[in-house]
Design a protein around this nucleic acid. Sequence first.
DNA 1: GACATATAGTTGTTTATGCAACTATCCAAA
DNA 2: TTTGGATAGTTGCATAAACAACTATATGTC
Lengths: 146, 146
Amino acid sequence: MSNNQFKRGELYSFITGKASTAIARRLQKNFKQNNVDITIEQWSVLYHLWKEDGLSQQQLCDATFRDKPSITRLVDNLEKLKLVNRVASKEDRRINMIYLTKEAQELQEQTMGIANKTLNEALEGVTHGQVEIAKEVLQNVYDNLK
Amino acid sequence: MSNNQFKRGELYSFITGKASTAIARRLQKNFKQNNVDITIEQWSVLYHLWKEDGLSQQQLCDATFRDKPSITRLVDNLEKLKLVNRVASKEDRRINMIYLTKEAQELQEQTMGIANKTLNEALEGVTHGQVEIAKEVLQNVYDNLK
DNA sequence: GACATATAGTTGTTTATGCAACTATCCAAA
DNA sequence: TTTGGATAGTTGCATAAACAACTATATGTC
């Protein structure tokens, strides 16, 4: 589809991603109200470790779409919070394997519940079919650019 | 619509907004390649001033969905770059009116072209109808949360 | 085995965000 | 006219992102 010409206002709001900013802020607020003291960026790292514990920092880069310095510092902060541990790989000493602590494991259920609730607040009045199409478009955009 | 239950992977990518991150990065890269040395955040402020010059900082907060400290500092940096000037309002001395310099006015055409090109790269293979629905969903999410 | 190259991770610098606390100005009600 | 609350903007602090430059380890090739 070659001709998606945009009018000014549409273009701008599409690029700046106000909707995802708004969801992120609301999620952070809902974490705070439930006394969950982590940032959404930290949560996004834990999210992947809950799916598969013991990922390398490079795997976390790929999974979270962040560069290496970002992951280094997020893992630094998660370590300070006693939520993860760096463990040097025995096969390849360049690699740090990141493991969840017990405390982090216990955060999963609560925070996933908050995230689900937040998303339902955000999608009030949007039909399932619309959401499916929106996700397809966003995935397509991501694939085009990555 | 009360029941938009999300599966894990879907939920995550919807919240983290990888697509808008990807667009933002590509736009920044395209600016750089064309020797436009501003950040996309700075560009997003200029964008609203091109539509209407002489907005107050508070109006820029509302327009760009940022808080007051963020706008204070973006305007600080735009002033350093000689792209805007702060002018104290004569009617209300609390208010700073922000005006574009000639140099900033000249950036409009070029950067809007780059932004349009970037968005077309991003939307390759997406139909106009799909884009319309995606925009509706994102607007709806924004309205639900703001 | 030695060397070039690739990969994993870290550090420094600049820019930006979110929140709280602050100053200055305006305005309305007593 | 004073006083109390609202509004506009700034500053300080912590977290995070992008980019470049760096160290350490691994690997493939001669």
